[in-house]
Every structure is written in C-alpha cells, then in structure tokens.
C-alpha cells in the first residue's frame, strides 16, 4: 500500500467549486533510464487515475512516463450533496490503490 496525501476542504457550500489535490508515493520509473548494471530499468508507472463523486466521474486521467515521481494532480469538483469522493490509481505490475474521503456539503 503506497502512501497517499489527499487535500480537500472540510466543508463546502452547495453548488460551489472546490479544489482537490492528490499525491501518491510512487517511483514512476519511466523505462528509459539505465541502472548501475547497464541495463534499462523496467517501466513501472501509474497509468490511470480516476476520481468519482458518489459513483459519478469527476476526472479520468491517463498518465505517461513524463509524469514526475510521486504523481501529483490538482483538479476541481462541484459540490452537489454530502457524499464520498473515491480516488483510484492503477498502474504497471498490477498496481492498484483506492482511497475514499467524505465531502460535507452545507
């Protein structure tokens, strides 16, 4: 289980737009670097990120090796009802991680 850091406001007024920042601990090895033994280090990246708000999509992103290590993403969500935000990362070698946070709409 990789460490993740998710930042979102404690509560949001209904209809307002708020910013979410997510950071995941991951090497994002691009598959282009040569290791100490002279061989190319195999690719190991997070390929897909999704954010769902009560089951409906907020953003779906495809990541490529040019994303820096410990992928950071910042995006914006419109507050509708109190509910949950689900974050899912999928990557090479069966990498899968999901995190859930609740949103309080006032």
């Amino acid at each position: 289980m990789a460490r993740s850091l998710i930042t979102l406001p404690v509560s949001v007024p209904r209809g307002q737009v708020f910013t979410v920042r997510v950071l995941l601990q991951h090497p994002m090895e691009g598959g282009f670097r040569v290791g100490a033994d002279g061989r190319v280090l195999p690719r190991d990246i997070v390929r897909r990120f999704r954010c769902l708000y009560d089951g409906e999509a907020v953003i779906e992103a495809e990541l490529f090796p040019a994303i820096a290590a410990n992928p950071f993403l910042e995006f914006s969500v419109r507050a509708a009802d109190s509910g949950s935000l689900l974050f899912v990362w999928e990557g090479d070698h069966g990498f899968y991680q999901r995190e859930q946070r609740s949103v309080v709409v006032t």
Partner: peptide
C-alpha cells in the same frame, strides 16, 4: 497526460 472530465467536475 490526457484527462477527461466527468459530470461532477468543477
């Protein structure tokens, strides 16, 4: 990166 927005995006 390529990102697609869903109905809940701000």
């Amino acid at each position: 990166i390529r990102a697609q927005f869903g109905p809940r995006a701000g």
